[in-house]
Structures are given as C-alpha cells and as structure tokens.
Amino acid sequence: MSLNIHQLGYTYPGSRKAILHNVNIDFRSGEIVALTGDNGCGKTTLTKLLVGILKPKEGCICLDGNDIALMSLAEIGRRVGYVFQNPSQQIFCPTVEDEIAYGLKNMGLGGEEIEKRISYYLDYFELSTYRQTFPLSLSQGEKQRLMLAAILAMHPRYVILDEPTTGLDIYRRKLLGDYLLRIKTDGYGVIFVSHQSKFMETYADRIIRIENSQVTDDQGEKSDARS
C-alpha cells in the first residue's frame, strides 16, 4: 500500500497565489509522518487533498498507483482515515457505539464482526464506559479517541490527523502519542499535522516542513539519503 504525491499544486478559488506548488512526497506504511509549518502554509490543505476533499489543480495523488481524483470519497475513506482538527464536525451518530458501527455497516460486515470490532476499539481507546453515551457530550480528547476508534475500526492503511494535540494536556498528549505508536506497530501509516516540536520529535519518524507553498525540509528523506 503506497500513498504518493507527484508535482502537486493547489490554488483556492478566487486566490491568485498557489497555497501548494510542486509538492512531492512518498508516504510509507508503518511510518509516522509529521507535517509542520507556519499558520496558513497549506498543511491542512495538503491533508484535505490527501483524502480527496479537495481536488488538485496540478499534479496528482496516487493511492496504490491509482489517482485519487478518480475515486469517490467513500472509496478513499476505506483506505485513508481522516480525523478533523475539530472532531465534533465528523460525529453524527446518537451513541458512541453507533459512531463506530456506522462505517462498518457501510462496509457490509456481519453483526458479529461489527460487535467484535466495536468492543475491541472501545477497549483499545478506553471508551468502553461511554458505549451508550451521546458522543457530542464527550470531552475533546475523548472525541478525538472516538474518531480514531471509528476510523481504525474500518482498517484503513493510513490515518491522517489534523492538529490532534490542540487542546490536549500533557497527559492526554502522551496518551495520543502512545496510541499513534501502537497503531504504527499494527502497520498503519500515520500522518499528522502539528506545531508542537516536542511531540513531533518524540513520536514522528519523519518531519516534513512546508514553507512558501513547498516542502522545504523532509527529515525522513534526508535520513534515507544518509543511510
């Protein structure tokens, strides 16, 4: 499973300046990649392009060699999970359990398998006590974990998180980081957007900096070159 960006460029409608230009990145499975850069440099835009919410104006993004511009959001979503900066905007079911089950039902899984995965991921993300709770009443960190659970339950190959550490205290940041390491060892590719250098240095295998619409630093690529 591969996720590659070739010569990517994007300009928002009505804007003359490209927010991203000539971006080339290869994301690998089993790797945690941090995207960083100043506010408004195009990090979130890049993540939205990676999941097909925005369509590239130049270049392409390939998932297993297939251009994602030709795929539906549902097809991409089964392979690339996305946690928004504000997870409240992607929670829409009446209970925590239903939230996790939603994607699994769409995948056509049987009741027994759905139940198994719900229990596993509720336990994995320490949400079992909230099983019948209204998800929008959870705390920010719990909502984030719920969204990770709902997305990982669908067994995508990549998970993208937009500024996941926003509003989390040190303990919860560590919990999140440990979850990321756990899912990395399970073979998931993780891409997250962050401004927190300590968090990135602790948990990311590779840090990509975006500046002036382009990738200006790719530590992973450098370490590959050195090796």
Binding site: S72, L73, A74, G77, G81, A150
Partner: peptide, 9 residues
C-alpha cells in the same frame, strides 16, 4: 465529507 469518508456512497 465525513459521512462519505466513512463509506457512504
């Protein structure tokens, strides 16, 4: 978008 990304065609 979120609804579609969770597999709704």
């Amino acid at each position: 978008y979120a609804v579609q990304m969770r597999g709704t065609e």
